[in-house]
Amino acid sequence: MELGVLDKPSFEESLRELAARRLAAEGHPTPEDLAAYRAGELATQQHERIKDHLAICEDCSRLFLDLAEFERFEPAQSISPADAGAEASWQRLRDRLKEDGLEADKLEDTRADEPARVLAPHPSRRRVPLWQRPAIPWALAAGLALCVVGLGLRVGSLGRQVDRASEPQPARIVSLVAEGEGTRGENESPSIRSGESIVVDLVLPMDLTAGGPYEVKALPAAGEAKAWTLGPLWAENKALSFTLPRAIEPGDYVFQVFGIDGEKRTLVDSYRFTILPAQH
C-alpha cells in the first residue's frame, strides 16, 4: 500500500537520524587518524571509512578543517609586534611552568654571559619601573642618556619611526642611517656592525611614556647563533642607546624591546637588523 504524503516521514529528518545513529555506533577517528588521512597515508579501506565519517560528523569535519588551517599556517619568521593578550598569557604560562618545577632545566635563564656595555642606571630607576609611569618627565632621563659609553662609530638614528606596538601588524623594517656612510639598507634589513653604538628611535605605546628601564633581546632570525640580552636600558626622548657586544655573531637578528617590571617583561616593539662583522 502506498502511503499518503502526510503519512510519509521527512527524508531529511530520517537521513539525519540515520547519521546520528551511525555516529553513535561507530565512534570517531583520532586526531592522528585525521592527520594521516589528510596526508594520504592510510590504507584505502580506512581512508574511505574516514571520508564517509566526515560526511556525517559535524565535529570531525570541523576538526578536519581546523587541521587544514594548522597545516597551512606559516608562522612569521620575523617577530610580530607586541600582542598584549599573548604576552599576558605567556607570563601566566611561564609562572605555571616555573611552579610546576618538573623540568626546571628547561626554564633556566640562559641570558648573555657577556654583559652589554650600557648606561649605568641611576639606582632609584633600577627599583622603580618608570616605563609604567606616564607622569615621569623626560628631563629625568635626558641626563642619563648623555652618558653613553659606546665605543666606535656612533650611528645616526633610525630614519623612520616605528608605529605603536600595541597595534598588531607585521614587524617593520626600518632604515638605518650611518654618519659619513650614507644610508645602509634603507627599507631593507638595516645592517650594523658588532661593536657599534646605535641609537634606536623607539615610539612608545601611549601608556608607556617614561624612560625605562628597558631590555633589548637580540634573537637570531635563523641558525644557531647565540641570543643576547642587553640591558637594563633607559630611553631619552624615546631613543635607546646601546653598544653591541663584540662577541655577537654576524647574521640576521630580530631585536625585541621589552619594558621591565621586576621579573615581568612586556614587549614594546621589535626590529629586524643584519649584523655585519666588526671592522678592524
Binding site: 605567556w90 628547561k106 647565540k226 641570543a227
Partner: peptide, 9 residues
C-alpha cells in the same frame, strides 16, 4: 639553546 626564549617564541 636559550630554552626559555625559544619557547617564548
Amino acid at each position: 639553546i636559550d630554552r626559555e626564549e625559544s619557547f617564548h617564541q
